[in-house]
């Protein structure tokens, strides 16, 4: 018999260690996975929504960017399309919510020919400056909300609504 021949005793020890190891691993793996699960969960990109607007195409004239996200309302899931007015302000990209602060209509850029360079709400002639600040003497009582912005592969991403940062 050569020395490296495996004895019956050794063979049994190896087999039991191996099988026991697998069994222990089988029990421990799910436990470990559950324990570290909160760390592995993705944050869903902080609810940023990718739009089809190229960053390079944004100028200092506000353009309307539509974006769609899924909204869960009880058990009912629906796709909601919202829009933002997006423009370049220096090096920064500004995305303003088009929802009028008066009663919630949708405002348009230069919607009134008499007031160039302003957002206009057709419902009650509310006006906002380019940075979203409401024009005194028109119905709206506050500035337009802003969206958080981010970039991904050259495309614009919009996040959640925040209060206007210009005023």
């Amino acid at each position: 018999m050569s020395n490296n021949r495996v004895t019956r005793r050794q063979f049994l020890t190896y087999t039991i260690t191996g099988v026991g190891g697998f069994m222990a691993a089988g029990m421990l793996m799910p436990m470990v996975r559950f324990a570290i699960d909160p760390v592995l969960q993705t944050k869903a990109e902080g609810n940023l929504v990718l739009t089809s607007q190229k960053i390079a195409d944004i100028t200092d004239v506000p353009v309307k960017v539509d974006f769609t996200f899924e909204q869960t309302d009880g058990w009912y899931k629906s796709d909601v399309t919202e829009a933002a007015w997006v423009y370049h302000d220096g090096n920064e990209i500004v995305a303003l919510s088009p929802v009028c602060k008066h009663l919630g209509c949708t405002v348009n850029w230069e919607g009134d020919p008499a007031h160039a360079n302003q957002f206009f709400c057709a419902c009650h002639a509310g006006r906002y400056e380019k940075n979203g600040k409401n024009v005194k003497g028109t119905p709206p009582l506050g500035p337009l909300d802003q969206y958080e912005v981010a970039e991904k592969d050259g495309y614009l991403m919009l996040g959640k609504k925040i209060a206007n940062t210009f005023s």
Partner: peptide, 8 residues
């Protein structure tokens, strides 16, 4: 309604 909800 979405566009003119403040008046309609």
């Amino acid at each position: 309604e979405q566009q003119f909800r403040g008046r309609v």
